[in-house]
Simulated scan of single mutants.
Amino acid sequence: MFCSIYDRQFWRHERYWKLANFHYEPLFNGTPFKGLVWRLGGARVGRRLFDDGAGYISEKSLTTIGDDCTLNAASRIQPHSQEDGTFKSDHVTIGNGCTLGINSLVHYGTQLGDGSVLETDGFLMKGEQTTPRTRWIGNPATELR
């Protein structure tokens, strides 16, 4: 999806995701309750999520996280972007058993295959799809061979 920043829908959406983030999530870092917190915000989260302090999931309703995943400190999931005066958003799907490294960023329209790892400081660009059980590193992220 995309729309102009002058569109009324953009401002409704912008207000929603800024006001919906009350910054209470850090209280649950490293606990089994962090997945529940994300679910209450609208994200689809599988079983046994270990979240050691993900920075944020900006649009929880566009995010799906599989079973047995790990989100490390300061990792971020951002299913939207503003490019050239246009607001764009798309779903982010993180498969089962995936790991987001420290300070990593997953952009909109991406899919991480089951068992994929986005290494520390990695940036998975918009539209990327990782194959199962691969490691990705860098900015922009490329497959580590």
Rank of each mutant, 00 (worst) to 15 (best):
S58L: 03
I77V: 04
G66T: 01
R145L: 12
D51I: 09
G138S: 14
M125H: 08
L112M: 11
E14H: 12
S61C: 09
T142V: 10
A54Y: 11
G41Y: 09
V37W: 15
G55D: 09
G42A: 09
D7F: 06
W38E: 05
E83C: 08
D67H: 02
F10G: 01
L19T: 03
T99K: 01
L144Y: 01
A141E: 13
C98S: 07
R12C: 12
G127F: 14
G127D: 15
R15Q: 14
L62H: 02
K126E: 12
G55N: 07
Y108W: 05
A54W: 09
G95F: 06
D52S: 02
V92G: 02
L100E: 14
T70W: 09
P26Q: 08
V92W: 03
E59Q: 09
Y56R: 13
G46D: 08
C3R: 07
Y24F: 11
R48L: 05
W11Y: 10
T130Y: 06
R133I: 05
Q129K: 09
R135H: 06
N72H: 10
T142C: 10
S61G: 07
R133H: 09
R76A: 08
L118T: 02
Q9S: 06
G127L: 15
G138M: 14
H23W: 15
C3L: 10
G42H: 12
R76Y: 07
I5Y: 10
I77W: 14
Q78H: 09
S81I: 04
Y108V: 03
S4R: 15
P32V: 08
N29K: 08
L118W: 02
R47M: 13
L124G: 05
G53R: 05
S58D: 10
Y16Q: 07
D84N: 13
A74Q: 14
R145S: 13
K34N: 01
I65S: 00
K34G: 00
T110S: 08
R76S: 05
F87L: 03
T130V: 05
A141M: 08
L112E: 08
